[in-house]
């Protein structure tokens, strides 16, 4: 079976969406030459009217997309640097997201914001290495962070078809992930539905984005020590698949979250809050996150020191299983 990489899956999702729906168009910085490789081949295939290179005017072109969406288009914006979302937070959180309610449902704003290479990009330092999916979730913007190529394809297609704004985070550490795929089976994946990435009985590890792959490795490793880990990949940060999570935790009654957000008010904090409100656990849950207020330092060892890692995950799993 052919191998499909995460980035190639996204490229295919864009091409299929452009092909299927004339109202879809792409805009962003350096997308005609495909600087991030996300849009490779699309200019040739779909032409400059549908693959629009923008000046470095993130705030205006993000609102421009909102205006185009209000006029019936389905814009897809690529941001190649996660921190650009800070620059356009107003345009997403305060404009695109609020139009439907503030107008009493008169309009829809189907814009997709794609962050190609979110989180640490290895050696890009403090202003290019954030992973702000929790911020978008907090304000209620639909936010997806797929881990696997087939999900990257399926969620990008669904995000573009969605009638609301959707932010799509493609973690830098996941872009090279490859999967054996029968291309004829590629299909939309619904927003708001998680998946059990690995079934297990002793503990549920909720992992998001590239950390799903770390969690799977840890699960493999711990299986050799008689620990059966279930890995739950929410795929969508907001709205969260509470039913899917509840079903997993009902089985294992133990919970660890690994999340590349800063700790305070992060995604993991939300999962633990949900657990406290709804779940019956046999041990206090644990979370593995970036530290509070983290700024990723440049030096590789420091960059890595700030990110949640497998050793921390193993320690957290052992802690929740301690009294077993």
């Amino acid at each position: 079976m052919p191998k499909l990489s995460y980035l190639k899956a996204m490229n295919r999702a864009l091409a299929d969406s452009l092909d299927r729906d004339q109202s879809v168009f792409l805009l962003g910085e350096d997308i005609r030459v495909a600087a991030s490789n996300l849009t490779a081949g699309l200019l040739t295939r779909f032409g400059p009217d549908r693959v629009l290179d923008t000046p470095l005017s993130e705030q205006a072109f993000t609102n421009f997309a909102t205006g185009a969406a209000l006029a019936g288009m389905r814009p897809v914006i690529e941001f190649q640097i996660p921190s650009l979302l800070f620059l356009v937070f107003e345009q997403i959180a305060n404009q695109a997201h609020k139009f439907s309610l503030m107008t009493g449902g008169q309009c829809r704003v189907p814009v997709t914001y794609v962050v190609t290479g979110s989180g640490s990009r290895t050696g890009w330092a403090g202003q290019h290495s954030d992973h702000p999916y929790t911020l978008l979730a907090h304000v209620g913007v639909k936010t997806v962070v797929p881990a696997a190529p087939t999900d990257a394809y399926g969620l990008l297609v669904s995000a573009i078809r969605d009638d609301d704004p959707v932010v799509f985070f493609a973690p830098s550490a996941a872009l090279g992930v490859r999967e054996d795929v029968d291309f004829t089976t590629l299909a939309p994946v619904p927003v708001g539905v998680g998946r059990v990435a690995r079934s297990g009985d002793d503990v549920t590890v909720v992992a998001i984005g590239h950390l799903v792959h770390d969690a799977l490795s840890v699960a493999d490793e711990l299986a050799g020590h008689g620990i059966s880990v279930e890995v739950f990949d929410p795929r969508t940060v907001y709205p969260l698949d509470l039913d899917g999570l509840a079903a997993s935790v009902a089985k294992t009654r133990r919970l660890v979250v690994i999340d590349d957000s800063n700790r305070t008010s992060g995604f993991a904090a939300e999962i633990l809050a949900v657990a406290a409100e709804r779940f019956t656990l046999d041990a206090p849950p644990r979370r593995v996150t970036r530290p509070d207020g983290a700024v990723l330092p440049f030096a590789l060892a420091l960059d890595r020191a700030i990110q949640p890692d497998r050793d921390q995950l193993v320690a957290a799993i052992n802690a929740v299983l301690e009294d077993r």
Binding site: D49, A60, T62, N63, F64, G67, P75, E90, C107
Partner: peptide, 24 residues
């Protein structure tokens, strides 16, 4: 297409809408 309470925000929205209409 709405009145906007953030000063200057709507100019780029109007620009996007006008661009889309021309495309259509």
């Amino acid at each position: 297409l709405g009145a906007n309470a953030i000063v200057g925000a709507a100019a780029s929205i109007a620009t996007g809408a006008a661009w889309a209409h021309r495309r259509q």
